[in-house]
Design a binder for these strands. Structure first.
Lengths: 115, 115
DNA sequence: GGCTAACGTTAGTCATCACTGACGCAAGGA
DNA sequence: TCCTTGCGTCAGTGATGACTAACGTTAGCC
């Protein structure tokens, strides 16, 4: 039996986006200020191309919003995109706390199955 | 100027571990029950080798704990490992909310710099 | 000691991905 | 119209990673 859980394309995309340190750094920048792509790229030593691709990934993951102003593109973090991740972590966290509590109480997995 | 943020090896390892769907599925399993490696592997269609490697990654990321019982190795989720991720998300979330509020108030980035 | 069960580890393969330079494109100003 | 500025896109490359089969190791039973 294959267990893969519910289909979760959005969560997967968001977590894959956050798994890259440079994208987290970019997200931190635009979490504090709305910034144009050029200014974001200037904050890093990698090429402007690389930063542009990171911005595309973050945008597809719905972690940032893009707004156009002439030839400039302004980016900022998207709070609701992070909220979903909090939900995932909270669920895992409470579940794991339950297991910890049961183990302390001596109620092993086999006990619960036998009962 | 290169901006990479504070060194965050633990956060990085945890997020990289969670970026893989199979590892999230494994984590969900051991968040509900403490399970031996064989039983975890039986829940998936990939080889036992692959699951063992996933368990190693999750263990190194401090997202699960391992306990030995004879030849068996029992695994379960580690609540404190998830708490760190919650902290990261909370910080980003509140920062992005601040930016959203400032933009709504018409206090643009340029305004704050000029002022 | 010999055997089996339950796992981890190693070596090798294929796909993914972060990166670069070159190019394309839209929005102004002269 | 021509030129520049600000960015995204394309094609190619090296590194990472998820996977498999084969092998090594430890615990317990006979």
């Amino acid at each position: 039996m294959e267990v893969v859980g519910p289909s979760e394309p959005e969560l997967d995309e968001a977590l894959r986006a956050l798994a890259e340190p440079r994208r987290r750094a970019i997200l931190r920048l635009v979490a504090h200020d709305e910034l144009p792509a050029g200014e974001i790229a200037a904050a890093f030593e990698v090429s402007r191309t690389a930063v542009s691709q990171h911005l595309t990934v973050l945008k597809n993951a719905r972690l940032i919003d893009e707004r156009r102003d002439g030839t400039r593109r302004l980016y900022r973090a998207r709070p609701s995109g992070l909220a979903q991740l909090r939900g995932f972590l909270d669920e895992m966290w409470s579940s794991s706390l339950d297991v910890a509590r049961r183990l302390v109480e001596g109620d092993s997995q086999e006990d619960r199955r036998a009962g």
